[in-house]
């Protein structure tokens, strides 16, 4: 289909989207987040589960002094010793820990041979948590979890929602009645409670969380698809596919679905944001993604105990802000997308 100016509709939508300042900023921030999540190992100074117990609960901007020791269990992730000072004597390295106690290690057990390789003074940009893990590192890895939850859960929700919505809208009759009954049953539960319920049923874990969120969030999509199909079904090109003898599935997925794509896309950006919130909420209650995999919800829960003490707010504040920013940009982007795809908004 083309617009009166001869542009394809998706091109027109893209042009409108680019003019929307909020949406563009949203896209850029989202892009940065995705790049950070993918490049996590290269931009973070530590492994997310590396603990330096001597450095537990340090404030943002803390500078440490550490010696990297070879880790026999996993050569890629060195063990870390916190030190206050060190000295090389022959084949040994003498060092004092932050409390001032002296120790000795053989140089061959350290990473590399030269102090430049095994000693460093890393910056803990956002401070550390109670196990002395770097908050910045965990925040970036938590972004991975949040974005994958959004992506995978929303894909599950889309698959179920589109399938059921299309069946209900295309066949109507008893298929519609049964599916709408299911929609109404699921709708009787607040989404987050349903996610909690499915998490209890499926158990804790990474994949269980994705599935629990996915199968709780398909109803809105199913309803939109059904509504769209109700009207699309009456259009002439659908009748034409029938006259040509196409099967129902071919008509539904090849011809009708692409014409219902606009609202589905808008709804899935909102769903993406909701999935991120749902995962964080689950981790906050202790269901969901389990330690040591870092997740924003867990980090917020960990920091919660320190809020009342009045110390180390960063442990709660930073993951909260990251989540708020993520959800905010998704919502702004979704709003822009809706305006861009809506043929009713005036062409500016």
């Amino acid at each position: 289909m083309t617009s009166p100016t001869g542009e394809s509709l998706s091109r027109l939508a893209w042009r409108r989207l680019r003019k929307n300042k909020g949406a563009v900023i949203g896209m850029i921030v989202l892009g940065i987040m995705i790049v950070m999540a993918i490049a996590a190992p290269f931009i973070t100074p530590f492994d997310p589960s590396t603990q330096i117990l001597e450095y537990s609960v340090k404030p943002a901007g803390f500078h440490g002094k550490v010696i990297y020791k070879k880790n026999l269990a996993d050569p890629n992730v060195p063990s870390i010793l916190a030190v206050s000072s060190y000295e090389e004597v022959g084949d040994s390295v003498f060092y004092r820990d932050p409390a001032g106690e002296p120790y000795r290690v053989a140089r061959s057990t350290l990473v590399g041979t030269d102090p430049h390789e095994y000693y460093s003074e890393p910056l803990f940009l956002l401070g550390t948590d109670r196990f002395g893990r770097d908050l910045f590192t965990r925040l970036v890895y938590g972004m991975r979890v949040s974005l994958s939850v959004g992506l995978i859960s929303e894909s599950i929700a889309l698959a179920i929602g589109i399938f059921l919505g299309a069946l209900a809208g295309y066949y109507r009759g008893w298929a519609d009645d049964v599916i709408m009954w299911m929609v109404n049953v699921v709708w009787s539960f607040p989404t987050i409670l349903l996610v909690v319920a499915f998490s209890v049923i499926l158990g804790k874990g990474y994949w269980q969380t994705f599935v629990a969120i996915g199968i709780s969030s398909w109803v809105d999509i199913a309803r939109i698809v059904r509504g769209q199909f109700f009207s699309i079904r009456e259009q002439e090109y659908v009748e034409a596919t029938r006259a040509l003898g196409f099967g129902s599935m071919r008509t539904i997925f090849r011809h009708m679905l692409p014409n219902a794509a606009g609202p589905i896309i808008v709804l899935s950006t909102a769903g993406f944001a909701t999935a991120i919130i749902a995962e964080a909420s689950l981790s906050f209650i202790g269901l969901g993604v389990q330690p040591p995999t870092p997740s924003w919800g867990q980090m917020i829960k960990d920091g919660y105990g320190y809020i009342a003490l009045g110390t180390n707010w960063g442990m709660t504040l930073f993951p909260s802000l990251s989540m708020a920013i993520g959800v905010l940009v998704l919502n702004v982007f979704g709003d822009g997308l809706r305006d861009a795809l809506d043929p009713k908004t005036s062409q500016r």
Partner: peptide, 28 residues
């Protein structure tokens, strides 16, 4: 938009932090 983007428990924690701990206006 900000209100929609923040999950309730995060808002709660931030309120505890600012109004309960920092400003001490309300019990947390």
């Amino acid at each position: 938009l900000l209100g929609i983007s923040l999950p309730a428990f995060v808002v709660g924690l931030l309120f505890v932090l600012f109004f309960g701990v920092v400003l001490e206006w309300f019990p947390n």
